[in-house]
Design a protein around this nucleic acid. Structure first.
Lengths: 144, 144
DNA sequence: CACATTTGTATGCGTTTGCATGTAATAGCA
DNA sequence: TGCTATTACATGCAAACGCATACAAATGTG
């Protein structure tokens, strides 16, 4: 009972602390971290496209918020919407060339920023362990 | 370069996944997770009070947002504002009895929910390691 | 095959948020 | 001491958010 909740609290506090610093980084003047996260997740789809509802699974924002955020990203020319040919209800999102390029450049800066921020906080082995345990935790929930 | 950023991504994704589930828990119908977080942080102050700016250090929301959230929590009778006698600019927040009681009851439900959600995801040793590494990561940033 | 249910997305609307800025108190300095 | 800079919080305002709901397409059911 105790170990899982204290571990969660520690993980959550670490996330808040890192996130506070990340939001200050200059690359997030153009796009908020939430918006970047949409581009990032889309860039990770091997098909290059994703339904709104599938994308929403990996984000903290609500479905209506994502729908409207997509409007904005679309009007900025970063994202393209098209109908799913196999399901007329569904919408498929994909990055435009411009969106993909912006994601890449923000991603590069983001990596630099993260490294500068936490690069020396833990050893390589510790980072690997943290990654492994975080992934295991996430997968446990996704599997249930 | 790589190990720190992939570990951060994994930690962040885990946080999103856990948080999505937490937000669905029934106890967060009364108060949002952000609002609960304010009560939680206040409950952890050994003095029982905290300046707005100090409290804000541990939260992701902006200072103006916290100021207005405090207005709402105050009007709900959960929080009390008073002036810092040693600094006329500053405001000291503290939980009212009602606020402390609500935090405790939400905290209890929260712990149950977390345990039900992730209790069996990792072993006790793994949770302890996750907690230790997360804390070390956070402290590295806070120290800089 | 009609009809109810479910699923996927969009929209109305009130609330919450952040940015820029205002105001007042303190600190720093010449 | 007087003046500037800084710090702490609040407020105006537009943007973004979530909830409830509407709508349309797909699925299930008799």
């Amino acid at each position: 009972m105790r170990s899982s909740t204290t571990a969660w609290e520690a993980l959550f506090r670490a996330q808040v602390t890192v996130m506070r610093e990340i939001q200050k980084l200059p690359e997030f003047k153009a796009l908020s971290t939430r918006e970047y996260d949409v581009l990032f997740n889309l860039s990770r789809c091997e098909s290059g496209t994703s339904r709104l509802s599938d994308l929403n699974q990996y984000l903290l924002i609500s479905q209506p918020s994502l729908s409207r955020m997509a409007d904005r990203l679309e009007s900025k020319g970063l994202l393209a919407r098209r109908q799913d040919p196999t399901d007329q209800r569904a919408v498929l999102f994909s990055l435009t060339d411009e969106g993909a390029a912006l994601q890449k450049s923000m991603g590069r800066e983001h990596i630099k920023g993260i490294h500068a921020l936490i690069g020396t906080a833990l050893s390589s082995e510790e980072f690997a362990t943290l990654q492994e345990l975080s992934t295991k935790l996430r997968q446990h929930i996704e599997a249930s």
